[in-house]
Design a protein around this nucleic acid. Sequence first.
RNA 1: GGUCGCGUGGCGCAGCGGGAGCGCAGGUGCCUUACAAGCACAAGGUCGGGGGUUCAAAUCCCUCCGCGACCACCA
Length: 893
Amino acid sequence: MTATSEENGKQKPYDLGAHERALFEAWKDAGYFQRGEGFGPDAGRSYTIVIPPPNVTGVLHMGHALNDTIQDACIRHARMRGFRTRWILGTDHAGIATQTKVDKHLAAQGISRREIGREAFIAACQEWRLEYGTTIVNQIAAMGCSCDYADEQFTMSPEFSAAVRKLFCDWYHDGIIYRGKRIVNWCPSCTTAIADDEAEYEDEKGHLWHLRYPLTEPVEGMEYLVVATTRPETMLGDTGVAVNPSDERYKALVGKTVKLPLVDREIPIIADFYVDASFGTGAVKVTPAHDPNDFAMGERAGLPKINVFDESAHVVDGYGKFSGMSREEARETVVAAFEELGLLDHVDDHDHSVMHCYRCHTTLEPWLSEQWFVAVDSLKGPAAEAVRSGEITFHPARWGQVYLDWLENLKDWCISRQLWWGHRIPMYYCDECGWQDASVDEVEICPNCEAQVRQDEDVLDTWFSSQLWPFATQGWGAFGNEAPDLQRYYPTQVLSTARDIMGLWVARMVMASEYCTGRIPFRDVIIHPTVMGADGKPMSKSRGNGVDPLRLMEDFGADGMRFGLLMQVTGAQAMRFDEQKIEGARNFANKIRNAARFVMMHLDGYEAGAPEPRTVADRWIFSRLSHLVAQVDRCFENYEFGEMTRALYGFFWNEFCDWYIEFSKSRLGDDADPADRAACQRNLLFVLESALKLLHPIMPFITEEIYQELPEKGAPMIIVAPWPDAAELSRFEDEAAERTIEMVCSVVGAIRSARSRYGLSPRTLLCACVKTADAADGETLQAHRSFIVHLGNLEKLEVGTALEKPAESVVALGPGLEVYTVLAGHVDFSEERARMEKEEAKLAADAAKLEKKLSNEGFLAKADPAIIEKDRAKLAELTDKLQRMRAQLAEIG
RNA sequence: GGUCGCGUGGCGCAGCGGGAGCGCAGGUGCCUUACAAGCACAAGGUCGGGGGUUCAAAUCCCUCCGCGACCACCA
């Protein structure tokens, strides 16, 4: 929907890797992409998403890649939760974008649009659409997006056209659509009106010309009035000069007239509060036909509106030598003429912003013309209320205010475009009797006098049809609110989009939906951050900082790109694209594959059964899994995708792989207890399968691929496998187990650290002993000695409360325990001493800081007792550790 | 002009009132039979400047500086 112009080159469709393509086809063939029936307790609830329809001639860019990943994650999550899901896919005809492209294409063959005429041109557009329209849909498929490909929509399909005509007629008959002669932003190159939102401002260096306008009759000795303007050429259409009514300098002049030079027109001097007395000379030339503010002043003062430019911005007939000149020529000539007449007072440099066409970048001309408008006053109230009442929620929430501000400042919307590619305005006119009406059906004969009628030549703004997207895609045009799909799948749940079309599209959908269906179009609006280039600037061709998502998929896989993109999502308004993150995600996918391989290759003698925590390691990983599920659920609820990916990554890599799989190794060997091995196998599978499910919305391909290899599975494919139940898993939460594993890990870490400090190979077998202050801790460690022996690569491990420090050993202090690693012959005691002194100093400093805090009366009086208690415990631990460290130091002398 | 976002170790970011974290890059040691797209260990920051609120501030408020977006627009 946001414009991407890939110049007429045909984009090579992304070639899915063999695995990805096969999985995609399997999902599609099984019908999982189509309107789902749902399952489980939520089967009655619908979850619909409409894709922001990309331009039919567009190609996938990073914005789409991010946005479509977000939507696919949401819809896959909902599908696994058992909702009736539907992700509506389709493309936008993109009036001006497509027309420009086809125009260029024809021009390259020496064909002009005007020569071949409207019908032939539209046929050319259709041809173009058929040729290129599948490109972006295939690219979306390559990403693995689970859209309803079997029911692809198009904003100019017959069904959609019927909806567009219906709304136009309804609004016309309700008096919401009206025709008027107004100033519009006119593109002289595209020769069409452009909506305010479609105009782009660019700062330009310009001049402020000070022109003398001779008074018709001198007033109080004044012969002339000096006006300041940035656009001298428009003076040909001046019909007045305005000053501020409270401006003392000009009070005597109000009501008098000046003789407009060059055209010799006598025009009045009027007073209007719009004029800023402090700017320029305080006197403004008024050109109602070529400036929106002048138009307004002209209306107030009843000035005539004289159009001096034609549709291509050349001076119209009747202006002598100026006629036929372009804007630029006319400017030079007018200024020269003033200079010649001695009426050019002076010229200042002046920077100002100038409107340009968002399509072709031609400078826009404010131009008076007959156009169709939508009166927004009656529409904006309900649209604002929907957000104010919380019926529609923005994520992040602050965008709600931006939305409301946009509505607040909304002015009537110019919907007519002087293009050919688009929905032709369904207005019919009888030139014989003057009959005119809007009609849903085609009209050929005047119902009044039976003469031939003609249809309006203009087409509608593309956004006019886009605003119907959530419901016109569901049968509203043909069946109104009774449409079966509408009843089942409306309102939609989530709309995810970029912020630049918040007003243009989001707000208009709300207004249209409230009017047409009486309901909101969606409940949650996700405004995702803008993907910036590596330099922090918006991606653009001219900057050359763009990244092609197709290339990313080739290099890192669709899963890698998806996960890597979501990892970078923050609540901020922009994200700086970092390809290293995509690479990291690819590595993560590889890690998942390898972990799965490990689990699968240790299934000898596997027997199916329920997961059952048997060891503390089991209890620990189950507890961690339970927390993870709850966290991922929370992230989905709040649409926090960055946090979600970080949580999944951390769990899978740093907990499941780094520790749980390592713990498992000693339980899976030939000499292991068969009952424990069986439990371990089941538990590994259980955690793996759960993690795969949690990862599936983001990494659909690899998770499905592995799921298919699992020895048993609860669903034919993971895409419809039931989502892990946080409430059910919460019974596994086990703080004691988490603490125990923390202790075990810290002992292993102490041994590894000692080994590494002295440059010993991890293969060197060592002896260690752990002295605990608490007998229970000793027993716990004893119970897990195989883990410690295994991960610490020990040949001997002693645990006890009354152990002596072994000779030739180094020490590490933990809470209530001392880990001695024997490094016979390797220890450098001076180095060891230095290290321990450094640690002692740190402990002393930390303890002192805490002591100071705990002796602060204000703190004791006002702080949360739980905090105080925590700090006291912390201090006790630090003090204890400090004493033991000092004892250790004394011992080594 | 208005509104909003961002300034945290070399880089990209998380944390948003009570112990400064993650990823990448860089360092050291390892091809430990799931994974070198890997493993282990270690190093690295007075959280943009200043002021305020608080027992307590990276976290809240004000202000300044720097970067950026959006909306409006001055003839």
